[in-house]
Design a protein around this nucleic acid. Structure first.
Length: 509
RNA sequence: GGCGGCGUAGCCAAGUGGAAAGGCAAGGGCCUGCAAAGCCUUGAUUCACCGGUUCGAAUCCGGUCGCCGCCUCCA
């Protein structure tokens, strides 16, 4: 059975090339993705990673793979301690709260749950065990209650990020902690001594807490074993985070490689004005203060529009966050849902629908055979090529255009056309579901988009409805001057009028 | 200083050795009282620049310019 599954090509960061994906066990995928350190709301850079791997999850399942997907929460970390201290709250309560906030945002974005979502705080014993193993094997050493990984003990250190210890300038980024007595500047903390009033657990090295990288090695190994099929995360985790995970995991287990494929998602950039008034584009980040929280973006744009926007660029490349891009994505999502709505309206005219009263199976309407019969294969091929979502969207657009073309007429469709439309609708919805798009019924989605716009534009729908009704009356009276005047007033408010045989509807620009 | 990436039509963006996807914007047409929506249609002899390999390069190699990311907070 497993040999029948469509094969997928992945770009692997370590080898810097696309390769056919060969899971260790045919048909089964072991995937680990680094989540976030939960000390604040997520921004859309985080959301991009979640949405992308959500598509990976959905697509593998769509193809019939048995996916075991682990995505962790780093709920013990110095940034959490610092934030908790500032706010005067318990660190684990703080992180628990932000896990809830994260879940809320990701649920709103339609990100499906991973198979397991483990937390650092629940794996302290496992972390201590791995630390002991690393110390025993000579890969780590204790200094005054801290435990450090001895990077020089791992010959292949740097193999993921293609850098050599000697080539790097320690402190280039101004982040190396030089106050500690480390053997090498790049040795990193596996365990940190905690003050009496700090969060900590007892260990062979005294009371302390885990360092940053160890949790992923521990949890991935615990849930998925020593060798992952796929390990993912944001590009900025390649060094040092993932490099250090490799060093820890391979040294501790004695097995290599730690992961067969490494997938890294590009950064979300922001277009800004520099102090000199120049247009610049740079990475969105907490420390630069140029970030948009997922919460904020969800307040202004439909979840599927946000996803659509993210799918317009290959996951590996940087993407620029800009309102124009979100607005264009919103219009595209509206376009797709409108196409579905047109199908439903057309089927109704023949007293069919896409669920119960199906048109009889018949030949396909002229000119649609290739599209109907070849679509899903082409669509899957696009995504199977390292998740080429831009190409996937192009194919979706092709179907939507065909649907609009086929539903131009206001008359009842023939059985052949109705049958074709039902199949095209199914294709569109099935294709959309892999990307987390078109998951609502058309009316709900279009209403949601409209309500969001009303809210952000601070418009009262009653005022709009009244003006629209007045214009309908003016049109019935053939008072074109008055009708156009009202339409101009509405247009000024940002309201678009659409007259059709079914009546007048409106939407927001 | 080291490592890596990017530079394709006005804008966004696929393609990475064999006839330049798709979207937005713009022009023309159909439809419409007029519009909007929708549909049809027009657009890169050319892929930052220079040189090379090849029967053939946006795609490979060398160089130049510009931009970006990472070098222990980072998704």
């Amino acid at each position: 059975m497993s040999e029948e599954l469509r094969s997928v090509i992945l770009f692997d960061t370590r080898t810097q090339q696309k390769r056919p994906f060969e899971p260790q066990q045919p048909g089964k995928v072991l995937m680990y993705v680094c989540g976030v350190t939960v000390y604040d709301l997520t921004h859309i850079g985080h959301a991009r990673v979640f949405v992308f791997f959500d598509v990976v999850q959905r697509f593998f399942r769509h193809l019939g793979y048995d996916l075991n997907f682990v995505r962790n929460h780093t709920d013990v970390d110095d940034k959490i301690l610092k934030r908790a201290d500032e706010k005067g709250v318990d660190p684990l309560e703080l992180s628990a709260r932000y896990i809830e906030e994260l879940d809320r945002d990701m649920q709103a974005l339609g990100v499906e749950r991973a198979t397991s979502e483990p937390k650092v705080s629940e794996h302290i014993d496992d972390i201590i065990e791995m630390n002991k193993a690393l110390v025993d094997k000579g890969h780590a050493y204790e200094v005054d209650g801290d435990v450090y990984y001895r990077v020089e003990s791992f010959e292949e250190y740097g193999k993921l990020s293609r850098r050599k210890l000697d080539d790097m300038e320690a402190g280039r980024s101004g982040r190396v902690d030089e106050t500690k007595q480390k053997e090498h500047p790049f040795d990193f903390a596996l365990w940190k001594k905690s003050d009496d009033d700090q969060l900590g657990w007892d260990s062979p090295w005294g009371r302390g807490r885990p360092g940053w990288h160890i949790e992923c090695s521990v949890m991935s190994t615990k849930y998925l074993g020593p060798t992952l099929d796929i390990h993912g995360g944001g590009r900025d985790l390649i060094f040092p985070h993932h490099e250090n995970e490799i060093a820890q995991s391979e040294a501790a287990s004695g097995e290599a490689p730690f992961a067969n494929y490494w997938m890294h998602v590009g950064m979300v950039n922001v277009a800004e004005k520099s102090e000199d008034g120049e247009d610049i584009v740079r990475k969105m980040s907490k420390s630069l203060g140029n970030f948009w929280t997922t919460r904020d973006v969800l307040g202004g744009y439909h979840p599927e529009a946000i996803r659509y926007f993210m799918h317009t660029t290959l996951y590996r490349k940087p993407i620029t966050y800009a309102v124009e891009n979100l607005e264009e994505a919103t219009r595209r999502v509206q376009y797709l849902y409108t196409a579905l709505k047109r199908i439903d309206e057309t089927l109704q005219r023949a007293e069919y629908d896409s669920d119960e009263n199906l048109p009889p199976d018949s030949r396909l309407a002229d000119g649609f055979t290739d599209l109907v019969e070849g679509f899903m294969d082409r669509y899957e091929a696009a995504l199977a090529d390292d998740f080429n979502t831009p190409n996937a969207l192009a194919l979706i657009a092709e179907v939507a255009r065909a649907i609009n073309e086929a539903t131009e007429s206001d008359s009842a469709p023939s059985d052949a056309l109705a049958h074709t439309l039902v199949l095209l609708r199914k294709h569109l919805v099935d294709a959309g579901s892999v990307l987390g798009l078109l998951e609502r019924d058309p009316k709900t989605a279009l209403d949601e988009i409209r309500d969001l716009r009303l809210k952000t534009m601070e418009l009262d729908p009653k005022v709009i409805d009244e003006k629209v009704a007045a214009r309908v009356q003016a049109r019935e009276d053939k008072d074109w001057e008055r009708a156009d005047e009202l339409r101009d007033e509405l247009a000024e408010m940002g309201v678009e009028i659409m007259d059709s045989q079914q009546g007048t509807t409106w939407r927001l620009k």
